[in-house]
């Protein structure tokens, strides 16, 4: 019963609030995840919102702040250079995603066999993934040099002999790689494939998760290795494939280091990608408003393709039940 004397009420100790085990667990969960949440808010969500605001300004972040409304967001749809960069990036992504996923899967399947020195081979194939992108790009610049690079030093003599053997009127010559508008982007893609080891490792983990009993049963039923691969390995690996495809889509649309170091977007903008273009717009021209609008256009493009991959996954990804 409530007393009319407040002093008496204040003196009485309020009933202690009990934390249920679930609440306590949730509290600890939030406590332990808080570094990530703080990092996400400060270093990801915060800058994203800030860049959205920048998109409404003509600004160099130093002296100029002029509101321009939706001008930059409209311009990204009409700017021929943005279109070119978007096309180049899509070209890279549409070839890179299936190619690198397939390559990583094939290597993983090979390395999943009981071969001698398995750990050694796994390390060898994973090693390129730990080499810094800048170092790889510099290395490939040398390999690709059309006149004295290692690649054409091997290819040209071979093509020379083939041309002679076939008595061709025009001698076959190796591509000029990054010194050619047609071959510059394929050169970047070939170089990027060198780093397929990361996805390979994830596939290897996925392959380890497939019960061996399924293969034994299939063998008893007379299924050969090819049938086993397409009827057991691939279906049960589809969640891993989806994961790798999503990661690959995001990484491919953000390709930057390789082109910055190897080609600077050239020749004649043949390797100008979206991130390189918005980097140039922002950090070289100091047009941060327009660069922010370009970043949002890129974000939306990535979002559309990732959502497409996820939405269609229900028709091809099989989860174990």
């Amino acid at each position: 019963m409530a007393t009319l004397n407040p002093a008496a009420d204040a003196g009485a100790r309020a009933p202690r609030r009990k934390w249920t085990p679930e609440k306590r667990e949730a509290l600890f969960g939030f406590f332990f995840i808080s570094p990530w949440i703080i990092g996400f808010l400060v270093f990801t969500l915060g800058p994203m919102i800030t860049s959205l605001v920048f998109g409404f300004y003509r600004t160099d972040l130093l002296q100029i702040w002029e509101a321009v409304g939706f001008k930059w967001f409209q311009a990204v749809f009409t700017d021929v250079l943005v279109r070119k960069a978007m096309f180049n990036t899509a070209y890279y992504a549409f070839i890179m995603v299936p190619l690198s996923t397939t390559l990583a899967l094939l290597i993983a399947v090979l390395l999943n066999q009981n071969v001698k020195g398995q750990s050694f081979w796994r390390t060898v194939y994973y090693l390129p993934s730990v080499v810094a992108g800048a170092a790889v790009a510099i290395l490939f610049k040398w390999l690709y040099q059309p006149d004295i690079g290692l690649l054409n030093s091997i290819l040209n003599p071979i093509l020379f002999r083939i041309s002679n053997f076939l008595s061709l009127e025009t001698q076959l010559v190796a591509p000029r790689w990054v010194f050619s508008q047609e071959w510059a982007m394929p050169s970047v893609i070939i170089m990027a494939l060198w780093g397929a080891g990361g996805a390979m490792l994830i596939f290897l983990a996925g392959l380890r998760g497939i019960p061996t009993a399924l293969y034994e049963a299939a063998k008893i039923d007379g299924a050969g290795p090819v049938r086993q691969f397409f009827s057991i390995t691939i279906p049960l690996l589809t969640p891993t494939i989806l994961f790798n495809v999503v990661l690959n889509i995001i990484a491919s649309w953000q390709v930057f280091t390789q082109v910055l170091i190897m080609t600077q977007g050239g020749p004649n903008n043949a390797t100008l990608t979206m991130v390189l273009h918005l980097y140039n717009t922002g950090f070289s021209q100091f047009r941060f408003g327009y660069a922010s609008a370009q970043a949002w256009a890129l974000f939306l493009a990535i979002l559309v393709f990732v959502l497409f991959a996820i939405r269609t996954s229900s028709s091809w990804v099989q989860y174990e039940r």
Partner: peptide
């Protein structure tokens, strides 16, 4: 506007003429 003039406008032309 040095970077825009040299890198964005003139460089693609130099690429086509001198490099390619």
């Amino acid at each position: 506007n040095d970077f825009t003039c040299k890198d964005t406008i003139l460089k693609p032309a130099f690429d086509q003429v001198m490099l390619l």
